[in-house]
């Protein structure tokens, strides 16, 4: 088992508000790591720190170090664009570009120059859509607008868009919270299928989902990492009482 990303003593602030307090955690390849905890516990902040999406938030500040393959992502010679290409992200609400399905998936490879010529690009688009389990549904309507798809399809399109850049890590911020149960099931299935190739971190409010899809679980509470370990351990034998209260539905 190899560590893909590791955070050491990370604290994050929005202005004066401390959102994360001295968090250290590893994200491993070929594993799904679930970040759970009540609203405002800092799990989404941690996720956004991992590919520096918080750079654009005014007043946001971070301390500690985060490394990708042993390389500090805040280092001067680290290009944030390259970082985000290597660490892809899927958001809470499906947010396809208002372009065609094809262009949605092709956008990343195009701006990073990952495909030479139309033929290669076509291949990348097809592979990505296949991996996202969307190919059969959209192969005849690649020129339709991405926004015309159903919610679940849109989210899988967004996953395909992230896969097309050939990332090493995929971050998912409550990817199913806006979807119905059937679409959720398909995404969960997809996460399972993707696990073999990528390191995946997923933020979720849904305990069953965390238990179903992840191998590792980290429980956050009030900006602190309370407990981190194998999912089976955390759910069957939580050490902290707050973890136990949370996963048994006492609050959250």
């Amino acid at each position: 088992m190899t560590v893909k990303m590791s955070a050491r003593h990370v604290s994050a602030y929005y202005g004066d508000l401390r959102a994360l307090d001295d968090v250290s955690i590893d994200i491993d390849t070929q594993h799904v790591t679930a970040l759970i905890g009540p609203s405002g516990c800092g799990k989404s902040t941690l996720l956004r720190l991992l590919n520096r999406m918080n750079d654009a938030v005014p007043g946001a500040r971070v301390e500690g170090s985060i490394e990708l393959d042993g390389q500090d992502i805040h280092a001067r010679d680290m290009d944030v664009v390259e970082l985000r290409a290597r660490v892809g992200m899927v958001f809470q609400k499906p947010n396809p570009f208002p372009k065609s399905i094809y262009d949605n998936v092709a956008y990343g490879p195009r701006i990073h120059g990952l495909a030479r010529g139309r033929g290669e690009l076509d291949a990348v688009v097809e592979t990505s859509l296949r991996r996202a389990g969307l190919w059969d549904e959209v192969k005849d309507r690649l020129d339709d607008r991405g926004t015309a798809l159903s919610g679940g399809q849109q989210q899988r399109l967004c996953i395909a868009r992230a896969l097309a850049v050939d990332p090493e890590v995929i971050l998912m911020d409550e990817p199913c919270s806006a979807l119905d149960p059937i679409a959720t099931a398909r995404i969960e299935e997809l996460i399972g299928a993707l696990r073999g190739r990528y390191a995946i971190a997923i933020v979720t409010h849904n305990m069953q989902q965390a238990a179903r899809v992840s191998q590792r679980t980290a429980f956050f509470y009030a900006g602190r990492l309370v407990e981190y370990g194998d999912t089976s351990d955390i759910f069957t034998n939580p050490r902290a009482t707050s973890t136990k209260d949370y996963i048994t539905g006492r609050y959250g």
Binding site: P98, G108, I111
Partner: peptide, 23 residues
Amino acid sequence: VPPSLREAAMGVGASPVQLVFHH
């Protein structure tokens, strides 16, 4: 322009300038 779209573009690694001109 909705913020979700900005995040989407940034999420696949578009630079600020690309974000402006492409989206």
